[in-house]
Computed example of a mutant assay.
Amino acid sequence: MADITLKGNAINTIGNLPKVGETAPDFSLTTVELGHKKLSDFAGKNIILNIFPSVDTGTCATSVREFNKKAANLENTVVLCISKDLPFAQARFCGAEGIDNVEMLSDFATGDFGKKYQLEIENGPLAHLHSRAVVIVDKNGKVAYTEQVSEIVDEPNYKAALKAI
């Protein structure tokens, strides 16, 4: 399990992110249009998984904005922003913010993504939500980079993530 903090208070995830070099676990998540997308739908592309507890918090919203800006200039790359927020909240946020270079996906229905990627928070006030993490999956479906952000209120290392592409 990953030892992380929320405003300095210790909490844990159910496990550790997949290792670099492993095949990324496939998943099925809900789109803002209430359809479903799987990792395999993006085969042949570099994939940035921007994972966070809720788009309705400052740091989570900032990570979506930052990856939205940076994704506009990336070739053969897609950014998937993943949380357990309802698709309606994700759509509202993107509409209000003019977000159009990332794809919002929700794990609200089953929570399988958080379990497969071992980043579900197991205790504390955010229990059962996702921890803040970034996973880069290369065009061959292999994990190329991971970052489990150690303090949930901190932003991920955008520069290191983008360098891994």
Rank of each mutant, 00 (worst) to 15 (best):
A2M: 08
D3M: 12
D3R: 15
L6A: 04
G8Y: 02
N12R: 14
I14H: 02
L17F: 09
P18I: 10
P18R: 09
K19G: 03
V20I: 15
P25E: 10
P25Y: 12
D26H: 09
S28W: 02
S28Y: 01
T30D: 05
T31V: 05
E33M: 09
L34V: 03
L34E: 14
G35S: 11
G35K: 14
L39D: 10
F42E: 01
I47D: 09
I48V: 15
I51Y: 07
P53T: 10
P53A: 13
P53G: 12
D56I: 07
D56W: 07
T57L: 02
C60L: 01
C60G: 02
A61L: 05
T62Y: 07
F67T: 03
K70M: 13
A72Y: 05
E75H: 06
E75M: 04
N76D: 13
T77L: 08
C81M: 00
I82W: 10
S83Q: 05
L86D: 13
Q90M: 11
Q90A: 11
A91P: 00
I99C: 08
I99T: 13
E103P: 00
M104H: 01
D107V: 05
D107H: 04
F113P: 01
K115D: 11
K115Y: 04
Q118I: 00
L119T: 14
E120N: 11
I121R: 00
E122T: 15
E122W: 00
E122P: 00
N123M: 00
L126N: 01
L129K: 13
H130L: 15
S131C: 15
A133S: 15
V135A: 11
I136K: 14
N140V: 03
G141N: 05
V143E: 09
A144S: 14
Y145N: 08
E147S: 11
E147P: 06
Q148P: 00
Q148Y: 02
E155L: 15
N157P: 03
Y158R: 07
A160V: 02
A161P: 07
A161Q: 11
L162G: 08
L162V: 05
K163V: 09
I165P: 08
I165Y: 06
